[in-house]
Design a binder for these strands. Structure first.
Lengths: 133, 133
DNA sequence: TAACTGTGTTATATTATATAATACAGTTAA
DNA sequence: TTAACTGTATTATATAATATAACACAGTTA
């Protein structure tokens, strides 16, 4: 479920953050679904529980998961609870990358293709109407 | 020209990399234009020359600038010297951010607006005849 | 030549990252 | 209630990353 590259220069806890975000964005982990426990992930990946805890805490601060003492960590509902400030941060990061893409010669069409693959015109969204799971 | 936040958790040399990239992408620094010297930037920002050198070396490795011993660092021409691999890296980073944007409820239109502001069409829109940058 | 430029080295200090070993508190199911 | 799970917190230790300091050497330019 989660894969870490121990030889990477990128800190493990940051890899965990990216990894779990990806699972949430892709719908593998749905709202209120329980994440594996700190100790469970630590066992599976053979890394220290404190490192998992650090990643979970960051994800909680960012509003992507919430924790319940004694029960575990769960995926936060993403209805309308994201701050405008966070949206601006994301949009600015996208802008910087698009500037770079433009500079190195990546076509506008290539980016539009990616847009299309993410913002699907499909009616079903994030499992709300989905009965396939 | 270059601004650094010494209290930021982001390493100084990474801030420098972003900052100089921004100057290149925005056209403030043009092809073959000379950058301020390592010691000059170090004086202005009151940070260590080695830190500037580290940022310059990274920018050189990425292909954004080149160096000439005894003369200085200069902006690399971006005609057709970017590797396909680097394009894939950038496109993947954009995709990840767009996924996150989609998840937190940012509209497709918001991103298209940004696209438009970066990939300016030759045809002027809304009667605007000049960009503000 | 003098004053720039890049580049490299060594040393030191601080911070970031990761592990290890515990301890305590709340939840859940047998 | 108890056992086994959860999150959370602390302290200690080790390593890597980051940044500074003080140089030295080489190439360029006016």
């Amino acid at each position: 479920m989660i894969q870490i590259d121990l030889r990477s220069r990128e800190p493990i806890y940051e890899q965990l953050i990216k990894n779990i975000k990806e699972l949430i964005f892709s719908g593998v982990l749905k709202t209120d679904e329980k994440l594996p426990s700190v100790r469970e992930i630590a066992r599976q990946l053979t890394i220290n529980p404190n490192t998992i805890q650090k990643a979970f805490k960051a994800l909680e601060t960012e509003g992507y998961i919430y924790s319940a003492r004694g029960r575990g960590h769960f995926v936060m509902s993403m209805k309308e609870n994201k701050s405008a400030e966070q949206s601006l941060v994301i949009l600015n990061q996208i802008k910087e990358l698009i500037k770079e893409a433009n500079y190195i010669g990546i076509s506008k069409e290539d980016i539009l293709t990616i847009m299309g693959s993410v913002y699907t015109d499909s009616v079903t969204e994030r499992g709300e109407l989905s009965d396939t799971d």
